[in-house]
């Protein structure tokens, strides 16, 4: 069965918006209706008794406390499974930073009427591994889990919650603004590309993922549209859709007129 993948990006935007809507609605429902069936945000989310724990936060907590804790490990299972099978899809399909960046990109494209996002700073691809390793090392050295209180996706959730619950915004908003500014003004998705340790961990886990953007050169006319639209600056026409960095957003799949790029499930 062949699934039509021409609208994959539309689907992604829909999922991304729903995930953000969840972040907005959860504290509202909790606060005004005492509806606690869904709780938390992407550091730990619970839907009934189905608990999710963000893998990096869980890992840091294990490294710092050097202790196993059952519920934490169980909560990390599903996100890790998703990352092993599909790679960094959390980043492109769910993460609220992605949602806000997409909104910002759309806004800047409409305001500036230019389709190009800035690319001021291009770092080597391995920077994200350095970010992950450095962050874990720093966490262990200081004995304080850094990503758990500085994680931008977590801060979005926390800010929304404090806004609803306490009608205030914490200072964390500065980090958020900084990340979005870097993502929008310096280089498209600079933070997501090179600096996000969670993204690094998820791409490390999804190195040998099943879901991949596969390039078939038969009909390719070398228009390079795929490379131009890739938010991570990858070159799908050189097979970089199968590299560990690709986050399976499907923008290139939708863009490709020749359908040379397709999502494929590696059956092994």
């Amino acid at each position: 069965m062949k699934i039509n993948q021409q609208h994959i990006n539309r689907w992604r935007l829909w999922v991304l918006s729903m995930a953000f809507l969840l972040l907005v609605l959860t504290p509202l429902l909790n606060f005004y209706l005492q509806f606690d069936f869904i709780q938390g945000w992407f550091q730990s989310l619970s839907i009934g008794e189905l608990w999710f724990v963000s893998p990096l936060e869980g890992l840091e907590r294990l490294l710092v406390s050097k202790e196993f804790y059952g519920p934490l490990l169980v909560g990390m299972l599903l996100p890790l499974l998703l990352a092993t099978l599909c790679g960094r899809v959390f980043c492109s399909w769910i993460c609220p930073i992605s949602f806000l960046s997409e909104c910002g990109e759309w806004l800047s494209k409409t305001v500036r009427r230019s389709k190009k996002m800035p690319q001021w700073l291009i770092l080597p691809r391995y920077t994200i591994w350095l970010a992950l390793a450095g962050e874990l090392l720093l966490t262990m050295l200081l004995g304080a889990p850094l990503f758990v209180f500085l994680s931008p996706p977590g801060i979005v959730g926390r800010e929304l919650m404090t806004l609803v619950f306490f009608q205030t915004l914490g200072f964390e908003i500065i980090i958020l603004i900084a990340v979005l500014a870097v993502n929008l003004l310096v280089t498209q998705r600079l933070y997501c590309r090179y600096l996000c340790p969670l993204g690094g961990l998820l791409s490390l886990v999804g190195r040998k993922r099943r879901l991949q953007v596969v390039f078939q050169p038969d009909h390719c006319i070398q228009c390079n549209q795929c490379q131009r639209v890739c938010p991570l600056g990858l070159a799908p026409q050189q097979g970089e859709g199968q590299s560990s960095q690709c986050w399976n957003c499907g923008i290139c799949v939708e863009k490709c007129q020749q359908q040379s790029l397709q999502f494929e499930w590696d059956k092994r």
């Binding site: 606690d36 938390g40 730990s44 619970s46 004995g143 919650m161």
Partner: peptide
């Protein structure tokens, strides 16, 4: 070190 700041206790 143990708290992952998920805020579920607050909610």
């Amino acid at each position: 070190g143990k708290c992952i700041r998920c805020g579920r206790c607050v909610e």
